[in-house]
């Protein structure tokens, strides 16, 4: 249900942009107003969400320790998985953010004849890493449409991306990887019963959206061969705050742009905020140095606890009879 709903939503978005351009000639709306609104929503929303999280304190230092603690000098500490310094915690975060360290550990449990076995299961790790790395690379490559002159790192990445040197325009591998990885993530949700069971519309929607974005991108580049110079005119107009609508850009471009705008605007209100959130995760970004440095809880308040005096008052006679020393005779 969730999947069908999300699929229909994305189709509707595509049709909306198509009709908007083809029937209503709303180029300015789809080429200028929506993108600006989307970017603004994305930036402000993102900042708002991060600030909102930041208003809740981290009252306790609760890292999940995944390796040997720092203890006796001859015991080898796992300085990354159980960091005791900020440096260790930083390295841990870098591994987490860029290489999905925790997901790399993934196993698959199997029950056979009443016995549980655990196999290494790296597909989810591989799929999501491929997804994220290609998404990032593609975004970075798109800077060629937003900067003039195009800086050399952008060229460099594109050259790497096109290292297969197939066809013209050169086949860029990340586009297909993104599409395949997104399809893989989607298929998981369809085919694995447990994952299907937990999936919400909010899980399918961004996947369909990204699949649509990647597909329209691939269509534009390899099949419809839209006029990239005009596209860049439009994008440069946007980023230089001199928006303009060049003539004769194919409608597919407006669909692509509209879907990206939707993704940007949707981002801060969705689970996609894991991008910012992962940095704040207290089980990962803290070092396990509790026994060396006292962690302060800003809302720590005094509680009424039972004191020794109350305790002795209740048990004084019994204590004395048992020969246990007391404060008051």
């Amino acid at each position: 249900m969730g999947a069908l709903f999300s699929f229909v939503m994305v189709i509707l978005l595509v049709l909306l942009a198509y009709a908007g351009i083809k029937a209503a000639n709303l180029q300015i709306f789809f080429g200028v107003v929506i993108p600006y609104a989307a970017i603004l929503t994305f930036l402000l929303g993102f900042v708002y969400r991060m600030l909102k999280w930041s208003t809740s304190p981290v009252p306790f230092r609760i890292p999940t320790t995944c390796g040997q603690q720092k203890s006796l000098p001859w015991v080898k500490q796992n300085k990354i998985e159980n960091p005791s310094t900020a440096l260790g915690a930083t390295v841990r975060m870098i591994l987490e953010v860029f290489l999905f360290r925790s997901l790399f550990r993934n196993t698959k449990a199997e029950l056979r004849d009443g016995r549980l076995g655990y196999g290494s299961s790296k597909w989810l790790w591989l799929g999501s890493l491929a997804f994220h790395v290609s998404f990032f690379t593609i975004s970075f490559r798109h800077l060629r449409l937003f900067l003039q002159p195009v800086p050399s790192p952008v060229h460099f990445v594109e050259t790497l991306d096109g290292f297969l040197q197939i066809g013209a325009p050169t086949f860029l591998i990340t586009g297909s990887i993104l599409l395949l990885a997104a399809l893989f993530l989607l298929l998981r949700r369809f085919l694995l019963p447990t994952i299907r069971y937990i999936s919400l519309p909010a899980d399918y929607f961004p996947l369909f959206l990204i699949i649509a974005i990647a597909s329209t991108g691939i269509l534009m580049r390899y099949f419809l061969k839209i006029d990239v110079v005009s596209v860049k005119e439009l994008t440069m107009g946007l980023v230089s705050l001199n928006p303009m609508i060049p003539e004769k850009i194919d409608v597919i471009f407006y669909i692509h742009l509209f879907l990206i705008s939707v993704l940007l605007a949707y981002f801060p209100f969705s689970k996609l905020m894991h991008m910012g959130g992962v940095f704040l995760s207290p089980t990962r970004n803290l070092s396990n140095n509790n026994r060396m440095v006292r962690h302060i809880n800003p809302w720590n308040y005094p509680v009424k606890a039972r004191t020794y005096e109350e305790y002795e008052d209740e048990f004084r006679e019994k204590m004395k009879n048992a020969g246990i020393p007391v404060e008051k005779e």
Partner: peptide, 27 residues
């Protein structure tokens, strides 16, 4: 968190402030 956000904004809006006011000349 602010430092992180500033870096995020600096990266995300880079195309804007590096182009702002520049006239676009179609080749």
């Amino acid at each position: 968190i602010l430092l992180g956000l500033i870096i995020f904004l600096a990266v995300a809006t880079f195309p804007f402030y590096s182009n702002i006011g520049k006239a676009t000349v179609k080749p």
